[in-house]
Design a protein around this nucleic acid. Sequence first.
RNA 1: GUCCCAGUAGCUCAGCUGGAUAGAGCAACGGACUUCUAAUCCGUAGGCCGGGGGUUCGAAUCCCUCCUGGGACGCCA
Length: 560
Amino acid sequence: MSDVVEEIKTDLEKALEHSLQKARDCGLIKFNQAPEITVEVPREKDHGDFATNLAMLLAKPARMAPRRAAEILVQNFSAGDWVERVEIAGPGFINFYLKQGWVYLALPRVVSRGAQYGSVDIGKGRKVQVEFVSANPTGLLHMGNARGAALGDSIASILAFAGYDVTREFYINDAGNQIENFAASLEARYLQQAGKEVSVPEEGYHGEDIIATCASFWEKHGDSYLSATEKERQEALVAFALEEKLASIKKVLEGFGVVYDVWFSEQSLHDAGAVQNTLEFLRKKGHVYEHDDALWFRATDFGVDKDEVLIRSNGLPTYFASDIAYHLNKLQRGFSWIINIWGADHHGHVARMKAAVEALGYDPAFLEVVIMQLVRLYKGGEIVRMSKRSGQFVTLEDLIEEVGRDAARYFFIMRGADSHLDFDLDLARSESNENPVYYIQYAHARICSIMRQLVEQGGQMPGAESVDYNLLVEEYELALARKLADFPGEVASAAAGLAPQRIARYLHELAGLFHSFYNSHRVIVPEKDISAARLVLVEATRITLKNGLGLIGIKAPERM
RNA sequence: GUCCCAGUAGCUCAGCUGGAUAGAGCAACGGACUUCUAAUCCGUAGGCCGGGGGUUCGAAUCCCUCCUGGGACGCCA
């Protein structure tokens, strides 16, 4: 247990429970059912270190004025080691004021847990899968994919740190309609390469990357596929292009700090007969029907407003059909929490997919879809228009090139998934005080600099257990230590809410407290004892900053 | 028309599983480098939390309704 805040909360809750029981036994207070006892950290510092609203919750069942209930509770309250005084305030809050040193309980724990500080076990090893990006392997990664990558990867890291058994997965849409389209586009470019007058289909892929792909195909195979059948030619082109595209996507994502555990091919589901088997299963369960030569899923049975086509009248299964097979596959692999990160343009798909999960005989709550709102790119104060048709858009690769991996990742996760993101390229690129990423990294670099200074002066890091923390009495020292103690709780909240932006905000606040401290006090001072205590304080800060930055995939530089 | 997301300081947004006096960054203004990194700090100013109703001891937070902006509503994915 490294969460000092949680420990004290629990202790206080237990003490309150005893107090309540005692008061009831003495007949001072009467009620049928005890309200839930919770201790919270008040927003206002003046309201103590911890507080409870128990007396107010008690007012109704005990038929008693809340302040009176509070008085009884306080009179029967036996304080633990750290409680200095208890006060009743406002409408009936009970505020607990702790002895100053309690915040320093966290420091030796941070140091001893090191890279593990902040990890919690709310997951208890539960198997969770996070599927994200899953971009069409027919093109380049765009800003939407980039946001999905940053969000999905950070969520996965946070869940892993919170005790879940996490699998990161990329679903490769290498089957269906868009592959037909892809094939036709590739073929057109190939034939153009051979000097023929062919145009890329209207609905095809017009990007320049396709031309480049065809050029490398031409280099390898020359005109040997001119005489082949259309089918052979297209298959060869598609196989070649998919391999090249996937390798490139993988490489770019790795450059963005995103590494997957599983790359799952949609085509493999068709090859294994999984799509057919899934449809057969649904048919047996009576969830499908035929209409207008197509096969439909009766989503309306599960409260969805429209049914959905599984097999088109031309005999080809829809994307939805293979997606159901894919989700069945996920469930069969033992994931009891499946998180999909989807763009807002797919939100209509959510209810249907949940209905499908239910139709398959699983709890639809197993499936959680994080819908992220779209990204608008700004440059020079104006929106940068992205258009697939013209092949003109900013790719993830361009973005990393232009603003750097760390700034890009920070900007994508500093807002909640459900808020529309205006990505200001100029701001992200600026290496100035306008850029919050550097603010956090700078705090880390500054601490590293202190450590270098320490070594240069022949000093060394004191043992965290041997330090007298009571020497840390300055306001900034207390605030910093208090903030460090919050980290495990922040990780738990971020995991529960799938909210990496909480980590970003936390780190920004932590860095801010450090900078304030740094500007008012020196760490390495002639008084050895104070120096030792401060060294542990900043070392604990460094560890926490590094761990937190790791969760959102941002580097913690030692120098800047 | 139906559904989803958003509406909080001049700008971009936190806070939204209900708590006490609503926060941060940027922008504005005034200060701080002979010191372990000034990519920093200190201070000032800035608000009918879109409008209206309701639930509650208590609402930015929950419910209803209206307004505004974005998105989705295909035998595309």
